[in-house]
Structures are given as C-alpha cells and as structure tokens.
Write a protein that binds this DNA or RNA. Structure first.
Lengths: 344, 344
DNA sequence: CTGAAAGCGCTTACAG
DNA sequence: CTGAAAGCGCTTACAG
C-alpha cells in the first residue's frame, strides 16, 4: 500500500484540519483563505498562511474537486493518425507551449490520444464524465466525430486551427493562413519568379484550403492565370512533399518557384529538386510554411512563414480557461511573419 | 458555472446512487461490482451492470481518490532544458508509447515540465502531495535534484535510462547501450574500417558513458590502440554532431568511419562530411544510434542501433505500476538491434 | 469576520 | 452475499 508513513514511505500529507489547529482557527476560515481570502481578517489570514508554510500544506484536489465539480485539469486531445502529429515538429512546440501556459495557472495537462475508434469512445466517456474541465483539441481534419460529440456535450473546447465541418460556435485559435500564403507568394513574385507551383496541405484541413486560397488570390492580383498543372496536394509529411515536387517537375519543367504549405513537405521538395539536379534557389526558389525546426535544419535553410506557436498555445489556453469560466466561445486569428533564409 | 443542466450544457452525471436505485440494490453492492465483483451474487452483479449501461455511469474519480488515497494517474516528468528533448524524435516515441501503455490501464498521463528551478519546486510539491501515484522520469543528466527528492519522499519512480548519481534503489528501463555500441563498432570493423572515430553523448549521461565504453571494449579486443584524437563529445543535438565531425576531421584526416552516439548527431556528422567532400559510405562510414525517424530521414539513410522504444515505454509503465502496487524497484535492460542501411 | 454543520460521491469495515 | 453507516478532505451557505 502507498498509504504508509514508515521509513522512506509517503507520509500522510497535512490536511486543512492540521492547518486550522496550527493556526488556531476553524477549518472554514482556512478554506476561505485558500479560496481568495474574502471575509477573513488580516490577522487570521496571516496566521493561516504561516500555518500553511509550517505544515507544508498542499490542497487535496480530489476533495476540492468532489465538491466544486471541477477537476482543475485540462485535456490535450490528439485525434486521427498520430504518427503525423508526432512527426511534425510543430506538435512539440504546441504541446510544450500549452503545458507551460497551463502550469502558470497551476493546471495540469492530461495528454489524450484518440487514434482508434475504441480509444475515441473511451476518451469521450472520460471527458464527458467531467474528468477534465475542458479540452485543447489538436485535429486538423474535418468531420472529426469527437469534436462534435464534445461540443454537443457542452464540454469547453478550443481547437488549434479553424475546424472544418463541425459547425460554428466552437472556439479556435489559428494563424492567418491565407495572409501568410499571400505574403510568401508575393515574395516569390517579387524575386522575379514567374512560374510558381504549389504543394498544398490536405484539402480537408484549414491550412490546406486557406494557404491555397492565398496563393490563388495573389496570382489573380498579378494577372497570372491559374494553372492546375502546377498545383499538387500533400499530407504535410516529408514524403508527400517529395512526391509532390516530382509530379510538379514532370508536369511543368519550367517551374522556377514552389510554395510549399509546410516546412516538412518543403524538406521533401528540396530532396526531389536536388535529385533532379535543380539548384535552390538559383533554378527554383522554395518557400515553406511554419518556421518549424525543419526550416533551419533544411539545406539550404528555408524561407518560410512563421506561425506564432508561442502565442497560439498561450491564446488557446487563455480562451479555454475563459470558456471554462463561463465565457462564450471565441475565435482568435494571429498574424504570421515572412522569414527570409537561403531557399529564395 | 459549469454545473448546469440546461440546453447544451453539461448534465449532472449519474452517481452510484442512481445506479443502485436503478438496479434495486444498495450503493455498497454497486461499489463492490465496480471494484472487482467480489462478494456479489451473479444476479446482483448482472442487475448492476445493466443499470450502469442504462445510466451511462462513469465513476467519479475524485470521490474514489479521496478515499483510496490514490489518484489513478501518473506523471511524465521532463527535467532539464526541454528544447533538447523536444528536438529529439525519441522523445515523441517514448511519450506516445507511455501514453498508450497507460491508457490500456485507463490511467491518464500528466505531462510535467520542470525546466526552471521554480517549476521544479512547484512540481515537486504537487507530486509529493499525492496528485499522481508515480512518475515516469525522463532526464538523462546526472545529479538531477528532483529525482533524489522524489525518491526520498517515497514516490514510485521509473527512469528512462540508468540514472547516474542518484544512488541505486531507483527503477529504470534502458536499452543495452554498451552492447549496442559493441555491435556497431564490430560492424564497422567487419566492413574493413580501420580508423574509427566516435562522437559520444554527454559524459554525464548513461548513453554517453556506456556507448563510449562499448566502443573502447571492441577496439581493445581488436588490438587497436585507443586514440583520444578520434574521440569527441556532443550533446545529442544535430549541431553538436556537425561540430564534432569537424573536430574529428581536423584531428584525424585519415578517418574512415565514425560511430555516433545518436542519430540526430549523426545527421550533423553527415552534413559536415558532405561539406568536407567526403563520400558516405565510400570514404567514411557512419553508424548512428537510436533508429529514430532521423535515421531514415537522413541522406544517405543511417545504419544504426535500434532502441526498442515500444518495449521501453511498455516496461517503464509496467514497472511503475508494479511499484505503485507495492513491489520493489527493478531495473530492466533491453537488447538492441543493428539496423543496416546506406551509411555503412 | 467566524464557526458549526451539511454534503460532494465514493469505499470499506461492520453486522447480519 | 448484502445493507446501513462512517468517513475520506474539502467548500459553502447558514447563523451569529
């Protein structure tokens, strides 16, 4: 048993009762100090705080949760094939950012993976049973059933990226994908490139749709006809970028630039270009998206669009906590930034 | 407030009392069914199970934890500068593996980052207050104070890799680093290489020490003198591999092979070799360690030593749960495997 | 501002 | 095998 107090074992932690005795007040008063200090005299508050320090008291969250009905914890939910997320350096940045932002509020993050139908069911039950107060949702694809279920169950929810197809009224935080794409394509044109291909993300993801839209807008503004032979789609993986670039090269050998919807795919594009004997950026300029670690690891290093991951994770946490506190859902769109490196 | 039951809001979940009424038994009986079904008649058990299904009952863990003194959750603790872990693909594999292994036991994983001194203190309090039943520790460096503190507080603990300098009596799960290194160096020699350099990991980590030891052993067995000019150390990062290879090349231009203590560093070595105009594997063979995604992403792909991450995470969880259940600490060493690819 | 008391949802001896 | 009852540690009206 873990409930021991022998040598080297875990001791019974002090309770509110120990603190009350130590401070010479009632347990109710201790609790009031713990919960904001309202209706407590300065002298009593001081005595309690001193007692807390002396005893090393830490609140028992289970007891508190039992009565408040809140768990004081938050889930970080990853749905769909997880390999992709884990392969993507962005995932790490987001996970770390959210963990830290939550830690500042003393709220633990529970990592939840719902890759299979079974897991999905189990986790939905777990969440709707109130074991977390809200969920940070990392799922790019549309039609994710778990998102709909959670929303209908009234679980506070914030998605990373605008969710497609689960209706509105769900909070999300996203970079301005379209605007970022516009910046990149404008940059490519400004370098004198005239035949700019694109490797999009999956077209059932916001990043896939919006970044392509930005590309088309800028070309239209520059009076360049849309040519679908220089538009291919990937799945954000390195391999799909490589395959995409090969198709591009086959369909349009005169290509002089490629806008790639993620840095990881851009790495694949670089590989394919290298193999085809094209120099980057001399023959073909390559623009990525994300400014993930992959951008600097690539050779040549990638000109890319920085997604403000720190701000994204902070905002996700902020919006979620607000919603847990009773506020209505909100959408937050954050600006991106062009980062110039060697590949353009 | 989240405690509503209005339109779209969260309903009050059914309690054990609802189930008892529904099944026509007492709450004690329901609880017995929930906890293994001992001392319950088949008919009562059946009625309870049916009632659970009908009501959609899910146990309130807070109430349960309050009385059992267990949290039924586990912490995944990352100490020290986190960038390195997050950069390392191994981290993802481990995190995912542990999450899944725990999910099979219906135990949530709490991600905890203790990068700064402040965080360390906060997290230590949180853990020792009993908010998790045990900790999976991912910290390679020696002298980690949090590990010592947790061990002394009697918190069940399993480290990934043999902890250096926090005494014995702490559980750990590790790949057989020394043996893996021996396999790789033997393989290099078997290819006819005669001047085998090494880029070690940090020498205050088990992987740093043990892999170097394996290297030395095999050279000694082959009657090759140990030459410290062809031994350099890195910190497992790609950049340090690159720098290491440059030093190696400067100190021993006649190098015909390098054993690198991680795939990520080996990627850096590849970059430096490429820049120096050395062909891999024709001029210099490169052997990595980990068989992380970096190994296949590298070009040429890396011959490496596979760490059995799936087994490592499974074993970490198994040993931790055993220890939470009262068993003594244990060390588990898992065999590695040579994976032959293009770089040797 | 403060204390006494009820109660959150569960488990576990204790009688039967 | 089963029910009635105590109690885990806390918060929150309720009196004062």
């Amino acid at each position: 048993m873990t409930m021991n107090n022998g040598a080297g074992g875990r001791r019974r932690p002090p309770t509110i009762h120990d603190v009350a005795r130590e401070a010479g007040v009632s347990r109710g008063t201790v609790s009031r100090v713990l919960n904001g200090g309202h209706y407590v005299s300065p002298s009593a508050a001081e005595a309690v705080n001193a007692a807390i320090r002396r005893t090393g008291y830490v609140v028992n969250r289970h007891a508190r949760s039992l009565i408040t009905g809140r768990s004081d914890s938050v889930g970080f939910l990853l749905t769909e094939p997880q390999e992709r997320f884990f392969e993507d350096p962005n995932f790490n940045v987001l996970l770390r950012g959210c963990t830290q932002a939550l830690a500042a509020h003393d709220i633990p993050l529970l990592l939840m993976l719902a890759g299979t139908e079974d897991e999905r069911r189990r986790i939905t039950r777990y969440i709707t049973a109130g074991h977390v107060d809200g969920v940070l949702l990392v799922s790019s694809h549309s039609g994710d059933p778990i998102a709909t279920e959670l929303r209908e169950a009234g679980v506070p929810l914030v998605a990373c990226g605008k969710p497609i197809g689960i209706g509105s009224k769900v909070s999300y935080v996203a970079a301005d994908d379209r605007d970022g794409a516009r910046d990149m394509v404008r940059h490519l044109l400004a370098q004198g490139r005239r035949r700019v291909g694109v490797v999009t993300g999956p077209l059932d993801t916001p990043g896939g749709v919006e970044r392509l839209a930005g590309y088309r807008e800028v070309l239209a503004e520059a009076d360049v006809d849309y040519d679908e032979r220089i538009v291919v789609s990937g799945d954000y993986s390195r391999a799909s970028g490589e395959a995409g670039a090969e198709r591009l090269l086959a369909q349009a050998p005169d290509l002089d630039a490629v806008f790639v919807a993620s840095d990881l795919m851009a790495q694949g594009v670089l590989t394919a270009l290298h193999r085809a004997g094209r120099r980057v950026p001399e023959d073909v300029a390559v623009g990525g998206f994300d400014d993930s670690p992959a951008a600097t690891a690539a050779s040549p290093s990638l000109t890319t669009i920085r997604q403000p991951w720190d701000r994204i994770s902070n905002e996700m946490v902020r919006v979620l906590l607000a919603q847990i506190g009773g506020e209505d859902p909100a959408a937050v769109i954050l600006p991106t930034e062009l980062v110039k490196r060697e590949s353009t």
